[in-house]
């Protein structure tokens, strides 16, 4: 951002343009890979950016912005379905059943279980509402097994169970860039028995020949089923977790974009931060780079990221042992002015922070207030309107402009923390002629 005042930020045109995956990878600034003073740091790259080990997957053609935003809508709906079932249980109030607004037919959770038996004697796993992965995600590279193989996986604060595709791929595997993990070649690998307490930590489980089975299914129909096992997980050349419990997928299908699997960072029992609680104290941090050609980081341990002053922290709410990181969004500022949105608009719906969702979803009343404040501030500058981009309905054509000035946007949270959104996060651009306000509305106020 070329300039930042309290009410506006100036964007250079090249900052608006998404970097094509064919451009070169920015060298990361002052990132030390490996151990930090009291933890571990891993580089994060955008799955479809030039730094990704998967960059030339799909024959080099990343998904279109429509596809990314479509998949993102799937994910948001899947999360909301999941939350509404747990919230209903907690609140006891049945939620209205609305047909899903997404254009694509959703597999209903009552669909026959995708977990058809892995072998004739295996139990079938019931389908769970799961979580949609979406395709706009960030990946990290982990080591698994002894000797450790390297696997590029999607990391996801909206999921708990880590899994990778495994040899011999008994049923079906999707194409992945790297070799499949082969448990038979790892001297530290072992299956978890059905009787082990760890097996009951799973949200969806089964049993086959005395071995614990896991199953995860996502809102877009993707799923992974296999043996729940333990092995050594290596996060950097200095740091490993022995006996880490993960899914060894023998039946995996879906939109995983040739990643080897997924690293679960949610609040549930099977997630990495909860499994490694004694080692990292339940603390981790991530930073997404401004551009998809940049490199961010995923840190584990109390030294994660520079010390965050209490002024910049917000309470983590709703401690029901389930996956999501609930926070209390309390207001929005545009151009430095606080929008007049009744607090109940935010408290009715509740808010989570989710690394796997691309676009922030707001209650409709909050979104319309944000949109009109943003649009009126921009109108004063005479920028040309552009057609909507999938669910993003407030778009502009910045063709021919070397730089543009847009109003600042800040999200305010309980405890006074304010997220003054970076310029790269206010505008989501498919191209310089279609650059949109990077927020969207939920369907209903209590979504």
């Amino acid at each position: 951002a070329a300039g930042r005042g309290h009410d506006h930020v100036v964007l250079r045109a090249e900052d608006v343009l998404p970097s094509p995956s064919s451009s070169s990878c920015d060298t990361p600034r002052e990132h030390k890979h490996g151990a930090t003073s009291s933890g571990t740091r891993m580089p994060i790259v955008h799955r479809h950016g030039p730094c990704s080990p998967l960059a030339d997957a799909h024959g080099g053609k990343p998904p279109s912005h429509e596809e990314i935003l479509d998949a993102d809508q799937n994910r948001a709906e899947s999360i909301q379905r999941r939350v509404s079932t747990t919230t209903t249980a907690a609140r006891g109030k049945p939620k209205r059943n609305r047909p899903s607004p997404s254009r694509r037919q959703q597999p209903s959770s009552s669909a026959p279980a995708p977990g058809a038996s892995l072998s004739s004697s295996a139990a079938s796993l019931p389908a769970s509402s799961g979580r949609a992965l979406g395709t706009g995600n960030y990946v990290v590279t982990i080591g698994l097994g002894t000797p450790a193989g390297r696997y590029t996986v999607v990391f996801d604060t909206g999921s708990d169970t880590t899994w990778v595709q495994c040899e011999p791929c008994v049923v079906v595997c999707y194409e992945q860039q790297e070799k499949l993990f082969d448990p038979a070649r790892s001297s530290t690998d072992a299956n978890i028995s059905c009787a082990a307490p760890a097996c009951s930590d799973l949200y969806t489980k089964g049993c086959s020949g005395g071995h614990c089975l896991y199953g995860v299914q996502y809102g877009d129909g993707s799923y992974s089923i296999g043996f729940f096992a333990m092995d050594t997980l290596t996060l950097s050349s200095y740091d490993a977790i022995k006996g880490f419990r993960f899914g060894c997928g023998e039946r995996n299908e879906g939109l995983f974009g040739e990643a080897a699997g997924l690293l679960g960072l949610g609040r549930g029992k099977t997630s990495l931060p909860v499994q490694a609680y004694d080692k990292y104290g339940g603390v981790f941090a991530h930073c997404f780079p401004a551009r998809s050609s940049g490199t961010g980081y995923l840190d584990f341990g109390p030294g994660s990221s520079p010390a965050v002053s209490t002024k910049l922290t917000t309470p983590m709410l709703v401690d029901n042992g389930l996956t999501f990181y609930y926070v209390g969004l309390t207001g929005i500022r545009v151009g430095g002015k606080l929008l007049s949105i009744p607090p109940s608009v935010f408290t009715t719906a509740g808010t989570i922070v989710d690394s796997g969702t691309v676009i922030t979803r707001l209650p409709p009343a909050a979104y319309s207030s944000l949109r009109s404040a943003f649009a009126s501030a921009i109108a004063a500058r005479g920028y040309k309107k552009a057609p909507a981009l999938s669910l993003l309905d407030t778009c502009y054509d910045f063709t021919g402009m070397s730089q543009v000035a847009i109003p600042t946007v800040s999200l305010l949270f309980q405890g006074g923390a304010s997220l003054d959104v970076d310029a790269s996060g206010i505008i989501y651009a498919a191209s310089v002629s279609q650059a949109c306000l990077g927020f969207a509305a939920n369907e209903e106020d209590d979504d």
């Binding site: 339940g282 989570i352 209650p363 970076d422």
Partner: peptide
């Protein structure tokens, strides 16, 4: 629920402390 997505989190160090039950945002972290 509302969902804060990764586009709006760019360049912030987002710290999750499950033990202390807080989430922190440190600007300009990457």
């Amino acid at each position: 629920v509302g969902i804060v997505g990764n586009t709006q989190l760019k360049t912030f160090g987002v710290v999750y402390d499950i033990g202390k039950k807080v989430v922190g945002f440190s600007p300009g972290a990457c």
